[in-house]
Design a protein around this nucleic acid. Structure first.
Lengths: 127, 127
DNA sequence: GGCGGGCTACTCGGATAGTGTGTGTCCGAGTTATGGCGG
DNA sequence: CCGCCATAACTCGGACACACACTATCCGAGTAGCCCGCC
């Protein structure tokens, strides 16, 4: 139970994109070199971020990626869920109906965590 | 990123042990049948719980497992960490020193989660 | 000088391994209550 | 009737397959800017 490396890469990549002024484009090569990973792998991560509507891609020469929204409108939860998926972090006992208190506690726990991550935006990460 | 099935089994097993009055013993066979898993596998889970000091085992005939403490003294965090280990759920950038704001946010997030799970005990799960 | 085609740099997406972890099973060893046997 | 011993039931721990997700790479396809040559 821990977040994948891809989530870490995604957060740092988003932070890099947030640092440049006003949605400027950055190429995968440059972003990958910053974190010492292969550009091809980072490309797959960026694809997920694009499909989630967090970044925008410009194909062709001089292309690259840029933020789709302003840094203060992108929260951590959206980034994490874009990579990890929206799977619940605890699969309770589906069969034994609703009498299971454990499920209730874990579900409440999950909601609280999502609420916390929703309040943290990229703007908070740029000091 | 989600909790393993073993954690789910562990929580339900602990809950079963908490339901019987005053630290009564229960065999692995009985506990396993309750969740439709093999007794051998559940035995491995109970071994981890024993090493963490959450349950006590009685070898020999008529042996079994029982809670080591009272239900209101066993919180969810202890059970989860006994199974999952105490690994941090987010490995930040160790090399790039302390300037990384992402690490700070995620560390704070982790602390808040542990604080929440510490307040929930087995007693809360028995209604 | 203007226009079009090839070139290049970049993203996009799928296919494909390697690797590690979680899941589950099997087997032998150690431990203790129970029942039987002999004294 | 009492004590010793074999047996059974259970836990304990390691070793071992198997499946799946994560990680990472490679390759082909598509797209857009740039340069060169032709008209």
């Amino acid at each position: 139970m821990n977040y994948s490396k891809a989530t870490n890469y995604a957060l740092h990549t988003m932070l890099e994109l947030a640092k440049v002024p006003d949605k400027a484009k950055k190429g995968v090569q440059e972003l990958a070199k910053y974190q010492d990973i292969s550009p091809t792998y980072l490309s797959k991560i960026l694809t997920k971020l694009t499909k989630s509507g967090l970044v925008e891609s410009s194909p062709g020469a001089l292309g690259g990626y840029s933020l789709a929204k302003k840094p203060d409108q992108i929260n951590f939860l959206a980034i994490i869920q874009a990579i990890e998926g929206q799977i619940p972090l605890f699969k309770g006992c589906e069969d034994k109906a609703n009498s299971c208190k454990i499920d209730a506690i874990m579900r409440e726990y999950e909601e609280q965590m999502e609420a916390y991550l929703s309040t943290k935006t990229l703007k908070d990460a740029i000091h």
